[in-house]
Each structure stands twice: as C-alpha cells, then as structure tokens.
C-alpha cells in the first residue's frame, strides 16, 4: 500500500498554478476533522493521562482523581514485583506455544485445502467459524468441554474406563487448556493468510517441478514454503500481537489461576487496576508493556531487514 503511495505522481505543474486561484479547500480539512478529533480526544488524551498517572500516586476520592507525584517510584517498584515477572513468563510461554502451533496447523490446513479442490468453499466457510464467534462464546464452548462435572472430555474418558481429570484446576492442565483453546480459536486466521498467498503462486512453477518428477513433499519444502515465507512471517507477527492482547478466555476460563498459573500480562493489569485500585502503578505497568511490545516489533523489523541485506550479499 505504501509503495503505491510513494510512487503515485502527485504533482503536475499545471495543477500547482491553478491551486493558487482556488478557494480554501474546506472539504479537504473537514473530512479528516472527525478522525482527528476522535484520535485527539480518545487516543492522545488517554495516553497523556496514562503517562501522567504513571508518575504519581493516584486515588479516587468522591469521583475525583487525586494525583500526588512520586517520581519514578512506580517503575522502581516493578523490579521487585514477583507477580509481574510471573505474568511476563506466563505470557511468554502462552505466546510461544500458541504462535508456533497455530502456524504449523494453519499451514498444514492451507496445503490440504489447496490439494482438494472440491473442498475449497467448505474450508473457507466452516473452518473460519471459530475466528468470528465471540471469544466469550468460545469460553463457554470450552467450559462445557473441560468442566470436571459435566464436561464432554471427562464424559468420554469415563466412558472409555479412564479416570476423570481436573483440567482447568491443575497448574499445567490450566495453561495447556488455554493454549489449546487459543489454538482452536485462531488457527483459521493463519489458514486464511497462508491459503490466500498459496492461491497467488504461479501454478506453472509447480507444474514444471512435478513434470521433473519432484514429489509433493519436496515441492512443498523447496518451492512452496520459500514462496510463502512473507505470508507466514506476516501471520506470525499478527499472532504475536494477538497473543499479547489475549484476555477474554483466561479471564473467563481460569481467572488467571489456579494461583498465578495462567496470570498473563493483561489479566495482571486488570487486577492491579480494578482489584487493588493501584491506578498509578497500573499505568506504569501498562507503559512498560507497551514499550516491550514496540521493542519486540522494532527488533523483528530490524532482524528482517538485516536478513534481507545479508541474503542479497550472496
């Protein structure tokens, strides 16, 4: 999109001279004004408040916020905050597992759909259902499967003669469960991304390869996957961001528990702000998390351009 913008010829000399005689372009400014107003009032202003809160002790007294400067105390306190460290670690585990699993499954599904021509409409329709149903409903769906008393999973286990399991009640089981739920929820996104890119591949390349006698798996490894790399990288970045944002399922299925076993960053932020009412500290944590996200993104951009530069050198 940006390249289109960069290359578009914007100025022709004849037009430049005529603009001098034109009246003030009201429409040009008015049409952007609502967006600018919304961004100023509901993005810039709250972000400013967030920064201001992070440097103070903030209390809510009779519906009014009272702010008192504490300098960098909120940020220093973070260093000794064990729960924050635990929540960072939980998020890292959750994000690593879900990104990798959704990528692998999404790619496999895309390749399979591409092989079975008659199934394309079916796949693009039915397989994306989890990605558009409300996360809250997804939580309900999985609670009905994982519940120790009435859940489908334990019913099946008992019918097969095995012992029922606690699933969400167990430290490792809870983390594994929310990972499975997230993978079920978001594999369709990776599938759609990769499948769209796969459809764009010039078929003559593949036909030439299969005439040469290359087996399908060799074609996938040496031709298809390299061509799909940009799409897979894009899907990975998007899944990473979604992993940091994830909140609804943990809040509803485990509430961060048992103990702090599934307390990811967003769950911890909510509890600092709405259970402990530590507004200043919550703001400082928020800013730190945003800085971390942006740092990771910048780093991945840097790595990507570095790889590109070195590969061009060969």
């Amino acid at each position: 999109m940006t390249t289109r913008l960069d290359t578009a010829p914007r100025t022709a000399p004849a037009v430049t001279t005529s603009t001098a005689r034109r009246p003030f372009p009201w429409f040009k400014y008015l049409s952007v004004a609502p967006l600018a107003a919304v961004f100023a009032g509901l993005v810039a202003y709250p972000v400013g408040l967030l920064v201001w809160m992070a440097f103070g002790r903030v209390r809510l007294v009779a519906g009014e916020f009272q702010w008192e400067s504490v300098g960098l105390d909120n940020f220093i306190r973070m260093l000794d905050d064990e729960t924050f460290v635990v929540s960072l670690r939980n998020s890292a585990v959750f994000i690593t597992a879900t990104v990798l699993l959704t990528l692998v499954l999404g790619i496999v599904l895309a390749l399979a759909t591409d092989r079975v021509v008659t199934a394309q409409r079916f796949a693009q329709n039915l397989i994306i259902w989890p990605a558009i149903v409300a996360p809250v409903v997804i939580s309900v769906v999985w609670l009905l499967i994982l519940s120790p008393q009435i859940g489908l999973l334990n019913r099946v286990l008992v019918s097969l003669g095995a012992d029922p399991q606690a699933w969400l009640g167990d430290n490792i089981g809870a983390m594994a469960s929310i990972i499975v739920v997230d993978v079920w929820h978001w594999t369709p996104i990776v599938f759609l991304f990769v499948y769209t890119a796969l459809r764009g591949i010039d078929t003559s390349v593949l036909e030439a390869a299969s005439v040469d006698g290359a087996s399908y798996l060799r074609q996938v490894r040496h031709i298809i996957l390299p061509l799909l790399t940009p799409a897979i990288a894009g899907a990975a970045a998007i899944r990473l961001i979604m992993g940091v944002k994830a909140f609804d399922e943990m809040y509803l299925l485990t509430f961060g528990g048992p103990g702090t076993a599934t307390t990811v960053i967003t769950i911890y932020l909510r509890s600092v702000f709405f259970d402990s009412f530590e507004y200043g500290y919550g703001a400082a944590l928020s800013i730190t998390v945003v800085a971390l996200v942006l740092a990771v993104l910048l780093l991945s951009f840097a790595v990507r351009s570095l790889i590109r530069r070195t590969s061009r050198g060969f």
């Binding site: 009032g41 993005v43 400013g48 932020l269 507004y279 945003v290």
Partner: peptide, 26 residues
C-alpha cells in the same frame, strides 16, 4: 502520521490503555 497512529492503535493491547481511558470516560 495518521497511518502511524492507526497502526499503533492496532498493535497496542487495549488493556494497557484502560487506565487512561477510564479517567477519560470519567
């Protein structure tokens, strides 16, 4: 500049903005 603000808003977890949004809405 406008596309950057839009892009950042897509990337930042909404939960991190909740403290600022809460005071704004108040």
């Amino acid at each position: 500049a406008i596309l950057t603000v839009a892009g950042l808003l897509q990337v930042i977890p909404p939960m991190t903005l909740v403290p600022g949004l809460y005071v704004t809405l108040l």
